[in-house]
Amino acid sequence: MYPKGRMSHHFREMCEGEYLAVKGPQGRFNYKPGQVRAFGMIAGGTGITPMFQLSRAILENPKDKTSVHLIYANTTLEDILLKEELDAFASKFPNRFKVYYVLSQVGLHPTDSAWKGGVGHVSKEMIQDYCPPPALDIQILRCGPPGMNKAMEAHLNALGYTSPMQFEF
């Protein structure tokens, strides 16, 4: 539950046994193995969902040689969804899957002292360091809160990623 999350508010107000209609996903992204040489992925919070599904499909297909470079931003260490699974991908496929975690609030938990990931918000420099550089066989996918998506689009444009190289879920 996020304190300012739109859905969190609805879930908090619900009582056991009540129903909530859900639809989606929105947007169309059809992946074919080998479609690009590499994906850069920038996810925030629950925006990891499509990134995880696509990464798993790529990595579990032995014929697919696509590499994945994920930047995953959250508020705190406890907010990182699917961390064990993502770390397992990085361990099992070290040449094809890289993940870089970014936290906007570090130091709130005793385990934070060992934090080695990024701090603050995803920056243009982080994208340069952890995503593949612009090329015709590269695509950058992004999924996160609206403000983050807008900021990432501006960073990507400034770094030379053209519209066809970008996709927002």
Rank of each mutant, 00 (worst) to 15 (best):
N157L: 13
H109M: 09
N74Y: 01
P3R: 15
R12G: 07
R96S: 14
E168R: 09
Q128I: 13
G118F: 06
V99H: 00
P164N: 10
F93H: 12
V119K: 11
P146Y: 11
A43N: 01
I80S: 00
G144D: 07
L70T: 01
M51Q: 02
L86F: 04
G40P: 02
I58T: 03
Q26C: 14
P146N: 13
R6H: 12
D112N: 09
K32M: 15
E125F: 04
D87L: 07
Q35K: 12
Y31C: 10
K83I: 03
E60L: 11
K98H: 15
G34H: 06
L108Q: 11
F89Y: 03
L86N: 00
F97E: 01
G45D: 03
M14R: 06
A90G: 07
A90P: 05
P146T: 13
K4I: 12
T49S: 08
D87S: 04
L159T: 02
P164Y: 13
V68S: 01
K32E: 14
Y19Q: 14
E16L: 15
V36K: 09
P50Q: 04
Y100N: 04
R6P: 07
A43D: 00
V99M: 01
V122S: 02
A114Q: 15
M7H: 06
R6N: 10
S104R: 02
G118M: 05
F167Q: 05
L54N: 03
H69S: 05
D137P: 06
T49K: 04
T49D: 02
F52N: 02
Y101N: 07
A114V: 09
Q105C: 07
P145N: 14
F167P: 08
L82M: 10
A135V: 08
A151T: 04
G160Y: 06
M14I: 12
S123L: 08
S91C: 11
Y101R: 05
Q139S: 11
M126V: 06
I71E: 00
G44M: 02
D112I: 10
V122R: 00
V106K: 04
N149Y: 02
L103R: 03
G160D: 04
P3H: 14
F29C: 13
R56P: 02
S104E: 04
L86Q: 01
F167Y: 12
D129I: 12
S113V: 15
M148G: 05
D79P: 02
T66S: 05
T76K: 08
K98N: 09
N74K: 03
A135D: 13
M165W: 04
G27A: 08
K150P: 03
E85C: 05
F93M: 09
L156W: 01
R56S: 11
D129K: 15
G40C: 07
S91T: 14
P133R: 06
I127P: 00
D137I: 11
A154D: 11
E13G: 12
G107R: 08
R56H: 13
E168L: 10
A73H: 01
P110L: 11
A21L: 13
N95R: 13
H109Q: 11
Q166G: 03
S55M: 05
P110Q: 08
V68P: 05
L54E: 01
D79I: 04
P50H: 05
